[in-house]
């Protein structure tokens, strides 16, 4: 949709979902990562950056709730050059900043494209939130919801917009399942019941010899290929 017809292209674009930037170039694909506190969003973002940074030009926006911890973790891990990581402050309401009032995040993604672009992919990480927190379509093109087995194996059954509607559901920390008594088969069946054909990935970033973030990275690669087509 090209909603800013009739306006000059001198200033910043006024409308968020437009696939083109003010200069007419196609903007970067934006993928949101949401989910409860401690489920492994930042670790997944870090692993995705390592997996994709040599193939694609990418950047990250974090939405910390009350600190710059997540941005600083990514900086410390040196997953990307520092100018490719930006933090947005959310005033105690992370879901507001990704859903109801997306202006600060839109400015962050546009500034990244202006300052370190051209970019092909921007990962927008939400602050840890509740099961109803989803990204606005005005901010991201696709969203990943990250939960973990230690948060309780009943979360897929409980559903909620994050679990039910995210374009990809990631069940993280599968290596912990035996220690916390979580039934992965039950989680998979519940997720299937809630999500129908929408994909689910079971992931462990820690298990030795495992595939780590590769399944999620492949999903992102497919999205990028579709965006570029």
């Amino acid at each position: 949709m090209h909603l800013d017809q009739g306006h000059t292209h001198d200033g910043p674009v006024a409308v968020s979902a437009d696939a083109h930037r003010a200069d007419g170039r196609r903007r970067a694909l934006r993928i949101g990562l949401g989910g409860p506190v401690g489920s492994g969003k930042t670790a997944t973002v870090a692993a995705l950056c390592r997996a994709l940074r040599d193939e694609w030009s990418l950047a990250v926006v974090t939405n910390d709730i009350y600190t710059r911890e997540d941005a600083e973790f990514l900086l410390r891990e040196a997953v990307l050059p520092p100018e490719r990581i930006t933090a947005v402050e959310t005033g105690a309401c992370p879901h507001t900043a990704i859903r109801d009032d997306i202006s600060a995040n839109l400015e962050a993604v546009e500034d990244l494209e202006d300052e370190v672009g051209p970019l092909e992919l921007i990962l927008v990480e939400s602050g840890g939130d509740n099961l109803t927190a989803t990204f606005s379509k005005g901010l991201v093109d696709a969203q990943i919801f990250v939960i973990d087995v230690a948060g309780g194996d009943d979360i897929p059954r409980k559903g909620g917009p994050g679990v039910t509607t995210a374009d990809l559901l990631v069940v993280n920390k599968t290596d912990l399942a035996p220690y916390v008594g979580s039934d992965l088969g039950r989680m998979a069946a519940d997720a299937k019941a809630q999500r129908g054909e929408l994909p689910v990935v079971f992931q462990s970033l820690r298990a030795e010899g495992g595939d780590g973030v590769e399944a999620v990275a492949d999903w992102v690669r497919a999205r990028l290929a579709a965006w570029a087509a």
């Binding site: 306006h7 000059t8 200033g11 910043p12 006024a14 968020s16 600060a104 400015e107």
Partner: peptide, 27 residues
């Protein structure tokens, strides 16, 4: 920062040449 955010919301809500001009002057 807040002016920029309000500019975005304002332009999307009530499109106007004056807002466009101000956005161009203060990106």
């Amino acid at each position: 920062k807040l002016g920029r955010q309000l500019m975005r919301a304002g332009r999307a809500t009530w499109p106007s040449a004056e807002l466009d001009a101000l956005a161009g002057r203060f990106p």
